[in-house]
């Protein structure tokens, strides 16, 4: 069982190596002549006006929260979906109740305007 996952682990390590190797090679083979203008953050040729870590629209935060809720629902659906044929109509109806509750929440957030971007 667990030895099936050994190649997966090895693959992740190889994936990291495939990423690190070009970065190291690029550093070794490319030129390296930094100056203060080159190293300043790009802002259409101006000096940077203020720090880039500024306030941003709260909607991004809301999207992230809604994502967590729905992603959890999907995580609940995964094991149910795999065994639906075995648990039959009872399993189907109980998941229907769960999905109905989820839909009520979804309609509520829609009506509240949480999904609006203008």
């Amino acid at each position: 069982m667990l030895e099936n996952y050994f190649p997966v682990l090895l693959f992740i390590i190889v994936g990291l190596a495939v990423g690190v190797a070009p970065m190291v090679l690029g550093r070794l083979l490319g030129p390296h002549r930094p100056d203060s203008a080159k190293l300043s953050p790009y802002e259409c040729g101006f000096e940077a006006f203020e720090d880039a870590r500024m306030q941003f629209d709260v909607r991004y935060y809301l999207v992230a929260i809604l994502f967590i809720l729905f992603d959890l629902e999907i995580a609940f659906l995964f094991p149910w979906a795999v065994v639906l044929k075995e648990i039959g109509t009872f399993g189907f109806v109980s998941m229907l109740v769960f999905l109905a509750l989820l839909t009520v929440g979804f309609i509520y957030e829609w009506m509240k305007g949480a999904l609006e971007w203008e």
Binding site: L16, V18, G19, M23, G26, G30, H32, P34, A48, A52
Partner: peptide
Amino acid sequence: LLLKEIIIPSSANKFLFVAAPVLALM
């Protein structure tokens, strides 16, 4: 691309700046 300079902006968080492309590819 291999022979181009890798520029790390002075105000950047250097470790994360270099690690991010690797984290995207892995």
